[in-house]
Amino acid sequence: MRLSFLEPLYAEPGPFASAYLDTSRDVEHPERAIALRWRRLRDNLTRQGADRTLLEVLEEVVGADREVPGIHGQAVFAADGALVLDGELPRPPAHDSARYGTLPDAMPLVTQHIPEIPYLAVTVHYGGLPTAKTHGWVRVDAETGTWPASNVTPGERLHRRVAVATWHHTAVRLGHRLDEWARRACADAVVIGGDDWASNVLIRRLPHTLRDRVVRVGGPTPTDTRRALLEPQLNIAFRGRMASHDRALVDIFIGRRALHLAATEGLSATVAALQRGQVAALLLNHPPAPSLRLWAGPQPTQLALTEAELVSFGVRAPREERADEALLRTLVGTGAELVVVPESELRLYEGVGALLRYTDPDAVLTRTRTAVPARAAGRT
């Protein structure tokens, strides 16, 4: 996945106040519940050393997502007396959390965007006289999005209402428009729900390139425009699935690894590649455990396993940071992508690897098995 949406975070030098909380509106007295949650987080941030200005900035936006219905969460970040990022979470965090530190606590936000699957959702409904389709109508709704973030940030929605008598003919023109829309969105899948007869007419008239990506779904089709079209069906259809873009990167990595080309594996070798700005995409079996630490300097590529290594590079006063926070800053700062790939798809040595932009002449695929203890991989 591309991490450009995090760039505003790292435009500020820090320190950062980061907060994650459940802002769902499906409970009795939601505003009171959110205020109580925020009060606990505010006290936590105060104990960690956050100043009053940062806390007031966060307080202004916490719970301001009143237009988002149902179950969801909120992630907010502030630095240098200003709000730097306010993100909606498609599901509440496992537990409310707050952190004050030199780097933003951004990994929970990233994991809520994974697997970042672009799609086109379409519902097709027939209505009208129960005994004569010639007097009825067909209603089509369509929407592009990127799952799962689009559950709470739906895109523009298309509405069409067509006389049943002209549906077979109109479906051809509509199919070409949907194909164009899906191409612009780089949609991995076209998820179609609604009435069988009307949906089948549309599917049979879709261009072949689009028809091959159709996923038929059943069940009720909620019409709340504040949530994603076909949200319940999307959550079922995409659960456990990787985005096509990420899967392609994994396939490239597997091929390069087999041929000892531009790839690396293991924590020590991957950190060394990140230091050189060599990484095009970082692959992880799972986000690093909070206990895993790396050393960092003020620049994104100033990253190392030990303090002594950074000092040898001329970095003054390096800091020990959580690995997830330090890695994300480096990825964003160097324009690298992040791919979280299940071990069932690809088991990485020490849980980490990278596709490289270029290779050193003397060492292409590096697997350092002795320099880093096994626990450093963040495995539990």
Rank of each mutant, 00 (worst) to 15 (best):
M1P: 00
L3A: 08
L9E: 05
L9I: 15
P13N: 14
P15M: 12
A19N: 00
T23C: 05
P30T: 01
R32D: 03
I34V: 14
R40T: 12
L41H: 00
L45T: 03
A50P: 10
V57P: 00
V62A: 10
D65L: 14
V68Y: 00
P69C: 03
G70C: 15
I71K: 12
I71Y: 00
Q74C: 13
A82D: 15
P93E: 04
P93L: 06
D96S: 14
L103H: 13
I114V: 14
Y119I: 01
L120I: 10
A121Y: 09
V122R: 02
T123Y: 02
V124W: 09
H125V: 11
H125I: 03
L129E: 02
T134A: 07
P148T: 01
P148M: 10
A149H: 11
A149S: 05
N151R: 12
R160K: 04
V164C: 05
T166I: 01
H168P: 00
H169Y: 01
T170E: 10
R177S: 06
D179R: 09
W181E: 02
A189H: 13
A198D: 02
R205C: 07
P207A: 03
L210W: 05
G219S: 06
T221W: 08
P222E: 12
F238R: 11
F238V: 14
G240K: 05
M242Y: 09
H245I: 12
R247S: 14
A248Q: 15
V250K: 06
G255C: 11
A258F: 04
L259Y: 01
A262F: 05
S268R: 08
A269D: 08
T270M: 10
A272E: 06
A273Y: 03
L274E: 07
R276F: 12
G277Q: 08
A281K: 09
L282S: 14
P287I: 09
P290Q: 13
W295M: 14
G297F: 11
P298F: 04
E307V: 04
T330S: 09
L331E: 11
L331G: 09
A336D: 13
V339D: 02
E350A: 10
L355P: 00
P361S: 01
D362E: 09
V364Q: 10
T370R: 02
A371K: 05
A374P: 07
A374Y: 01
R379A: 04
T380K: 00
